[in-house]
Nucleic acid binder design. Structure first.
Ligand code: ZN
Ligand code: ZN
Ligand code: ZN
Ligand code: ZN
Lengths: 132, 132
DNA sequence: TCAATTGCGTTATGCTATAACGTGTGCAAT
DNA sequence: ATTGCACACGTTATAGCATAACGCAATTGA
């Protein structure tokens, strides 16, 4: 997926996410963009849908939040799974890929004749700083 | 975690889940239990909290639903990750464990000094029957 | 010009989850 | 026996997350 020019709303949402130090919920994004004219959740969700489609933003299912892709220029997204380590103290997210895990999971799915379409790998816990 | 005697509400919720052929949302469970006297979401959520704590039920984060554990008598849950393949057509869920994936993920987390507490591995797609 | 597509704004609604309050019951410790 | 505590439960209200459905405007391509 090559990323087309972003629209105004898409850019605003994307900027908020890239500047954030932790994942944001759609409603938090909305609040941050009220000064720029945002009024309704759909304005955020519609922009997010596109950004997700372009692969420049990820959705964290386990915390109903969104985060800018940490390495949008790698091609891992097109052929591999993405995993996230999410710190429950500071909110920091580490995005990573592991081909070994990919292949192992894919092999298992293939053995079950299961056609995978979307994947979610999220580990919640505490990052090095917060583990104390 | 050894599972203590279930209370009435916990049993009702657990029974609904074990009899279901697909994961259920809390509100769907509520509807199925109205005849047994359930009136409010909290009755379901409180029961679910306990069942999750006992490890006999899993929450599927990516679809906001709950499913009875497919092999509650194995000890994998205590030391390993659990993964789910979820069919988006028929709702069937296949629960599985893979120690290779576990170790690989755990090693990576350890290398980042990240203390993992909860994990979510969910693959959505189409099962053998529905892939057509 | 006309139709199709896409983005946008708005209102309303639906789904998911929890806060806060009070009740009753069982079970120690005093 | 009385007190205090833990726990399950019931109820109402509220918070948080996501989408349906309508209409309008700009773009594009036949
Ligand atoms: Zn990414
Ligand atoms: Zn942290
Ligand atoms: Zn299980
Ligand atoms: Zn299926």
């Amino acid at each position: 997926m090559t990323t087309p020019m972003l629209t105004k709303n898409q850019s605003l949402v994307f900027d908020v996410l890239t500047k954030a130090e932790a994942p944001l919920s759609a409603y938090t994004i909305l609040d941050k963009l009220r000064d720029q004219g945002f009024r309704a959740p759909l304005q955020v969700y519609r922009a997010l849908d596109k950004l997700l489609e372009y692969g420049v933003v990820h959705r964290l299912e386990s915390i109903n939040s969104f985060v800018a892709c940490a390495h949008p220029h790698e091609d891992c997204h097109s052929h591999g799974l993405v995993a996230f380590a999410i710190c429950e103290s500071c909110g920091q997210v580490i995005e990573f890929h592991d081909h070994e895990v990919d292949h192992r999971l894919m092999d298992w799915l293939k053995s079950q004749k299961f056609k995978a379409e979307k994947s979610t790998i999220e580990i919640r816990g505490h990052c090095a700083n917060c583990a104390a």
